[in-house]
């Protein structure tokens, strides 16, 4: 694992801003249960607002240097996206239905191709919406990826993965990650992700076999390795200054938090889910170290607002989880 060491720039200050999750399980539980109640009463139509409330809470409970993040997306925006997404899926369903009548195989092929083609559009749309609605001290994040470039990349990577019977999967994950993260802006700050498919492949192969050999116990260490690989290859730069990210999570720590969460969920018959999730967020925030000479105060506003939430809602329908 290479460690990028960034020497302090002349005159610059070396700092390590703290990332914290200060939410509490009780409040989060309250939000989830009120959401659940309203969703039940409205037969699910409340969902976009429920989601806005939930994201709002999770974002504002995450702090960097004691200032919290803001999710400014609204239920109304997401409701519009929700309607569009439903319309699109119904249209898609009708087309598949017609093709199925013509020939079953044709329908199935059209379905698979359709979903595969839909995915990159969804990921792109959801990233644009989610990041543009995220801000910190008034400075908006943004996703600058190009739609056609991303779709082309996605299709290429996907086909290679299919052709190699999944072996290329590690490369696909890393290449998509490289593209997406490297296009995220934090005001004038730029994120970069430089991962290597081969390294990630080796990590996964090692994790896979050791997990089998140790009857699953190594799974936690594998997870810690993947997490470290995701975090440690990320940087944030502003002009010629940069921050590096480092994971301090170990397999043992993962084991601890996952075991605790499992016990919470089991012994509360699932009601403790909110507390378990909060534990996980705390764990993640605590285990990311940021270090470098970026001066956060100098980050300036560069990103546009983007209010089309269709991708965000489609992502939910397809059950994609986006951070």
């Amino acid at each position: 694992m290479q460690q990028v060491y960034t020497p302090p720039a002349p005159g610059g200050l070396f700092s390590s801003p703290r990332l914290k999750f200060i939410g509490n399980g009780g409040t989060y539980f309250g939000i989830l249960i009120v959401n659940a109640l309203l969703c039940a009463i409205t037969l699910g139509l409340y969902y976009p607002w429920a989601k806005a409330k939930k994201l709002n809470y999770l974002y504002q409970s995450t702090t960097l240097e004691d200032s919290s993040f803001t999710f400014s997306g609204t239920g109304n925006e997401m409701f519009k996206g929700f309607i569009k997404a439903i319309g699109l899926l119904i249209g898609f369903g009708i087309i598949i239905g017609i093709l199925m009548r013509v020939h079953v195989a044709l329908g199935i092929i059209a379905y698979l191709v359709g979903i595969t083609l839909l995915l990159p559009f969804v990921i792109h749309g959801a990233s644009r919406y989610r990041w543009s609605r995220t801000s910190w001290r008034g400075i908006r994040f943004g996703y600058r990826g190009d739609r056609s470039a991303f779709v082309a990349l996605f299709i290429k990577e996907f086909l290679l993965t299919v052709v190699t019977l999944g072996f290329y999967g590690s490369w696909m994950v890393i290449n998509l990650r490289n593209y997406i993260i490297s296009n995220i802006r934090f005001g004038s700050g730029e994120f970069k992700y430089k991962g290597d498919g081969w390294d990630f492949f080796v990590l996964n192969i090692k994790g896979y076999f050791l997990t089998i050999i140790t009857l699953g116990i190594y799974g936690f260490w594998w997870q810690a390795d993947v997490f470290r690989y995701y975090i440690d290859h990320m940087t944030l730069s502003q002009g010629d200054r940069s921050y590096t990210f480092r994971s301090t999570a170990t397999g043992g720590k993962f084991f601890g938090v996952i075991l605790l969460n499992m016990l919470i969920i089991i012994f509360t018959l699932g009601i403790g889910y909110a507390w378990a999730e909060v534990n996980m967020f705390k764990f993640i925030a605590e285990n990311i170290e940021i270090e470098g000479d970026v001066v956060l105060e100098q980050l300036s506003q560069t990103e546009e607002e983007y209010t089309n939430a269709m991708g965000e809602d489609l992502a939910d329908f397809l059950d994609l989880s986006i951070i």
Partner: peptide, 9 residues
């Protein structure tokens, strides 16, 4: 109740 909360056990 439990399904809507996101928890399913």
């Amino acid at each position: 109740f439990l399904g809507g909360m996101g928890a399913y056990s």
